[in-house]
Design a protein around this nucleic acid. Structure first.
Lengths: 347, 347
DNA sequence: TCCCAAACCTGAAACGTTACAGGTAGCCTA
DNA sequence: TAGGCTACCTGTAACGTTTCAGGTTTGGGA
């Protein structure tokens, strides 16, 4: 049977130190219950071969002494890390995106044994690098990532290696995988139409992502469709992306809005861009809602209270985080990826 | 000696599966080098009792086969988790704070074996709860936390338990611990003085934190000192904190700025608050830089390009993240906490 | 020639968990 | 009464690492 000394501590407590309670293990419970360690392990995970009375007894003791399974032990034995990794591009910080994503994911994870680790990579680095690291070292059970591209090497790699993951954004590579996306096509369509409805005819779209990212195409498609249906003129404005420095946006906007053939309506795809846009527009001596109308997507609630004249559409990133977390968790449990694909719609 | 089968795999690979390369362990290297596992372990950590030639040989093999220590093994044996935990209040999302903090910390951690996990807690919950969880389950080697209070129970608890940590913000409880803080007293002083220099005499301060948080006092002190020295009148405006909903701020500001005894200068302590303030001010029919002057601190670069009339002071949260990460790491190595205390200054 | 220390290297044990391959008691059936 | 089934429970081994307590060789000094 068990040796009591081994259960209660590593030796006699020194007189001048407080008796530090050892963290309880399965062995502690086994000793207290007069059972084998195996039985306790099984009882705690509700295995069918353990009697109900024993289970109750074990669970009572476990709760009383505050037993928590040692993650290192579990991980070493089973390979299960109980970690979800959020892989992020540190550059693309659309206002509040990272934080809301983190908080959304955490909300879901807080009721589970999973922890969240964040792995940012800098823009100069290969996006594959953190992914490979996680897979090679087996440091997470699931991955959440953003900046999804139509033909995304990360998606291919993870699928080949059978690692559960979910992407913020869709791909176009014929691989069914969990994702959550905002319906940017509908957003661009609706946004453009609302400008058309105000009589605007010379419309530009700004503040979208790099063309490499999938949702750039969605935006483009929705925008161009509405423009065409409305018989309006699309104004191309280069160099105002969501990753562009705000000072550059402001300057560029002022310049664009001073041209004779300036747009009279703007669809903006990000909140921080919108703020710099407004600054540029007003620096050019124009008035929002009079000379030009502005519709913008936002991922934090800043715009709402900034200029009531701006038509604001919310993309709820926190909700996206929740969806993505749910998706990876269910994928880890083996769910069909096609059931883990969701879209949110602009209202 | 070692059994080759044990080193190269768990059995013959099935014909229809690709030969999945097993992840190398110390045993793999030991077998390849014709050494004992112990020797390899020691060689890799540069122990003095291993010969130089052996070290070189072992390290070469390790590098060649891409050996990475198994974290679960290390953690189980030594108790070292190689994890730093960032504990955050999910409510207090000052614009971009969370993300910049995360990125700053990651920058430092990326050159170390440490991973970053994020543990948010909701405002309704006890701030001690996540801290206790981490300590009880031993799930991190170090903790970074914010919203530091003058008499902070978390600081007391962690100090008593000897867990390395660093706080964003100072305490006033006579415990020397690592921290990084922004010199909010100087900020408030400078900000107020710059308003005085513009001839403003009726000055309010808004957008600070909850009075429970330490830096509330710093702001107050700097503000009141400058007010007194300048023989100006402080205008008290209640209910416009950094955590207040922006809609509320906007409404309240409009109301305050419509009073006959309205402030003619405002010191604002957060960027998002400033945006809502401006909206309120302009809704009241006033013009920034004419009827009222505004100085604001910001933690993202939005304000800069928003209204040039606003005097902007930057608090670099990314830098704070770097400092805090450095501090915990050095604390883990046993450095004196008094050498891990730093302040950044408004320029 | 013998002994001893220094320089290197070693196997076994342990961390906490789960999987494997049983073991035992009690009871029912033939 | 034997055989066998069911319901519960058990010890041992293993995951990969580090620590402990040695072991072996080499070379130098007496």
């Amino acid at each position: 049977m068990n040796d009591e000394a081994k259960v209660t501590g590593r030796g006699p407590a020194k007189a001048d130190e407080p008796i530090e309670a050892e963290r309880p293990t399965l062995k502690t419970i086994a000793f207290m219950a007069g059972l084998g360690v195996t039985t306790v392990s099984r009882a705690l995970k509700d295995a069918p071969e353990i009697g109900q009375a024993t289970k109750n007894r074990v669970r009572l003791i476990a709760k009383q002494i505050g037993y928590r399974p040692n993650r290192a032990g579990v991980r070493l034995r089973t390979g299960k890390t109980n970690v979800i990794s959020l892989v992020l591009n540190a550059q693309s910080e659309i206002m509040g995106l990272t934080s809301n994503m983190v908080y959304g994911i955490s909300e879901v994870l807080s009721n589970t044994p999973y922890h969240l680790t964040v792995t940012p990579y800098s823009a100069e680095n290969d996006p594959m690098q953190p992914i490979r690291y996680i897979v090679e070292t087996g440091s997470a059970d699931g991955i959440i990532m953003s900046r999804t591209e139509p033909d995304d090497p990360r998606v291919r790699y993870l699928t080949e290696h059978g690692i559960p993951f979910a992407t913020h954004g869709r791909t176009e590579m014929g691989i069914e995988h969990p994702y959550h996306d905002f319906d940017n096509e509908t957003f661009a369509d609706m946004a453009t139409k609302s400008l058309l409805a105000k009589g605007r005819r010379r419309i530009a779209m700004m503040g979208g992502p790099s063309p490499a990212v999938t949702y750039f195409r969605h935006l483009q498609r929705g925008f161009l469709r509405a423009i065409e249906e409305g018989n309006a003129t699309p104004i191309a404005v280069a160099g105002i992306d969501v990753d562009t420095a705000l000072g550059t946006i402001r300057r560029k906007t002022e310049e664009v809005m001073s041209r004779p053939n300036r747009p009279d309506g703007i669809v903006c795809c990000s909140g921080s861009t919108a703020i710099a846009l407004v600054a540029g527009i007003e620096a050019a001596g124009l008035k929002i809602g009079h000379d030009v109308d502005l519709v913008s997507k936002q991922t934090s609630d800043v715009l709402h209270w900034f200029r009531p004249e701006i038509i604001v559409v919310n993309e709820d990133i926190r909700h996206a985080g929740r969806q993505l977390a749910q998706a990876v968790l269910r994928r880890i449990e083996g769910a069909d990826p096609r059931e883990l694909q969701s879209l949110s719609y602009p209202f």
